[in-house]
Amino acid sequence: MRRLWLALRRLRAWRRSSDPVYKAFVERPLPQRGTRFEDAELVCLDIETTGLDPESADMLSIGWVLIRGGKVDLATAESLIVRPLGDVGHTASVHGLTDTIVGQGVAPTEAMYRVIAALTGRVLVVHYAGLDKNLLDRLCRAQFGDKLLVPVIDTLALEHRRTSRHHHLDDTRSLRLPDLRAHYNLPRYGGHDCLMDAVATAELLLAMVASRAPDCQTLGDLY
């Protein structure tokens, strides 16, 4: 159902839009639900923002890396510093991005073009869609007239679904990215670097897929 809905929305967006990059993005057929995980291309993405409210926060930096052939391909790793509309604010102490650094970044519209290009024909992977995906939706709507019409895998939601389905699992367990990674015996990373967080999310997804085998082999098992 969701896929059908997404396809229709994309069709409508294609008709309405005049932007060639966005048109190419919505024109490309969605990956089949039956596509095997190893055959799919997924864009794992993370954003550093000025705040936690997707309706008001600005993007400070964005990084992504592809999973293809069932591996995280670091050659595809990309990150951008984004020039925000407001100032960096007090969160600078968290992510280390100061006004001076982000002042040298690209405009948010340029960043969206790059994100849209990377996502064309691919699946988006984020840890907690509530922030990153909603923020991208907002920026996308402002720029192209519709939200980011792309299939999403949310590693946090995926783990949450599993813990709530299995009542014996401890559902008070933290679902924060570093804690979930530790749960899957993945190494500890420094944090607060959007590209490393994107890589961290990608590795987490590989671990989750591997640990759910053989029940998890296609994209349809992950949406």
């Binding site: 052939g69 670091l74 790793a77 890589v199 590795e203 590989l206 897929v209 591997a210 640990s211």
Partner: peptide, 14 residues
């Protein structure tokens, strides 16, 4: 060297 890396995850026994 770092950018040429592909990362794979293997369950015990694979």
């Amino acid at each position: 060297a770092a950018r040429s890396i592909q990362i794979g995850y293997y369950r015990a026994g694979s």
